[in-house]
């Protein structure tokens, strides 16, 4: 099987410029269009409302730090305004920091300190939830440290609080349970990517799929040129030929997709766990798609017209999914985007 991989590597080595271009094209596109991505990222920041009913130093700190989050557009407003904004879909969600927030945290409690108001349409507010949860956890644990030190030694609460706070750099993320303000129970889903990132990943996916489809022409040409016959008579069977070419197709698909996806996540400062989670999912979908393509290709008799059909399917999958034109669950791009 590896003989066929080495055969194709050898063939690609003869045209290094073309091979490198095919491999690096999506990365080049990512790097060259990164300024556009950045702009898109700013424009697509998730709008959330924050209501600070406590107006204490703790609540102000939470609001200030959440405002620093790159992918959130934080709007301060009153409680009725926030609820109305959520209902109208002007913000993804609202977070109401209740009166007594600071006292509650200083007492070492975290339950029901913030109300999370969201609607059925809310999807991207989990970012805000994460950011607020992290700050809440940070302050509450600092307060607990301050309390403990004050009770057991001569160290003041403030000193203990400050001392504990220095252990939070770089800022870790924690999930907290919030009391949800909406009537609907919303299952906690995966961390979604921004829509521009999703479209870009879908484009890389399309590119990798197309490269793999075009590679299938090799098998048609082998048959037409009599090489497959020669292999059949040489090796007795063609199992290793087909297994070897399947391996090459998978390597080609992964090789064109994965570096581009990682480069994209790296440039857009996506966290490593999110990067790994999405890259892993996209790879699984890509491999599944390539396996289906492969068996369809074999099942349809390895004809030239199947290449045209697969190209149309791949482009259709991307277009229909991105444009959300229905029947989307049938398309690999849809599987990619709707990560369970």
């Amino acid at each position: 099987m590896l003989t066929y991989l080495s055969l194709h590597l050898n063939k690609w080595k003869k045209r290094p410029g073309l091979a490198l271009f095919i491999l690096l094209f999506p990365i080049l596109v990512t790097i060259l269009s990164y300024p556009f991505f950045q702009k898109a990222a700013e424009e697509t920041a998730v709008p959330v409302a924050i209501v600070d009913e406590d107006e204490s130093s703790y609540s102000t700190t939470v609001v200030r730090r959440v405002r620093e989050a790159e992918r959130l557009h934080v709007l301060s407003m009153s409680s009725p305004e926030a609820v109305e904004s959520v209902q109208k879909g002007q913000v993804e969600a609202a977070f109401i920091i209740k009166k007594g927030f600071q006292d509650t945290l200083q007492n070492g409690e975290v339950e029901e300190t913030i109300t999370w108001v969201r609607s059925n349409e809310s999807t991207l507010d989990v970012f805000a939830k994460e950011a607020i949860g992290a700050e809440l956890m940070r302050i509450s644990l600092n307060a607990k440290a301050g309390n403990t030190l004050e009770q057991s030694s001569s160290v003041s609460f403030e000193k203990g609080f400050q001392y504990a706070d220095q252990f939070w750099e770089p800022e870790p993320l924690f999930q907290m349970d919030f009391k949800k303000g909406s009537s609907e129970d919303v299952a906690q889903g995966p961390v979604p990517l921004a829509s521009w990132q999703m479209v870009t990943v879908a484009l890389y996916f399309l590119y990798a799929w197309l490269v793999a489809i075009l590679f299938l022409r090799t098998l048609i040409r082998d048959e037409e040129a009599g090489r497959l016959q020669r292999i059949r008579i040489t090796q007795y069977t063609t199992y290793s030929y087909f297994a070897g070419h399947f391996l090459v197709m998978i390597v080609l698909g992964i090789g064109t997709f994965l570096p581009a996806a990682i480069a994209l996540f790296f440039l857009s400062s996506t966290s490593v766990p999110v990067n790994a989670e999405w890259s892993g999912w996209a790879m699984a979908v890509l491999v599944t798609t390539l396996v289906i393509t492969w068996f369809l290709f074999l099942g349809l008799g390895r004809k030239r017209w199947t290449i045209i059909l697969f190209i149309a399917l791949a482009v259709g999958s991307f277009t229909l999914t991105i444009a959300d034109l229905g029947w989307t669950l049938a398309w690999p791009h849809s599987w990619l985007i709707h990560k369970p």
């Binding site: 050898n10 040129a225 090489r227 020669r230």
Partner: peptide
């Protein structure tokens, strides 16, 4: 036991 030379040039042209 059989060696077969086809009419076509059944070779990998790039090699």
């Amino acid at each position: 036991e059989i060696g077969y030379v086809p009419q076509e040039i059944a070779l990998y042209e790039e090699l």
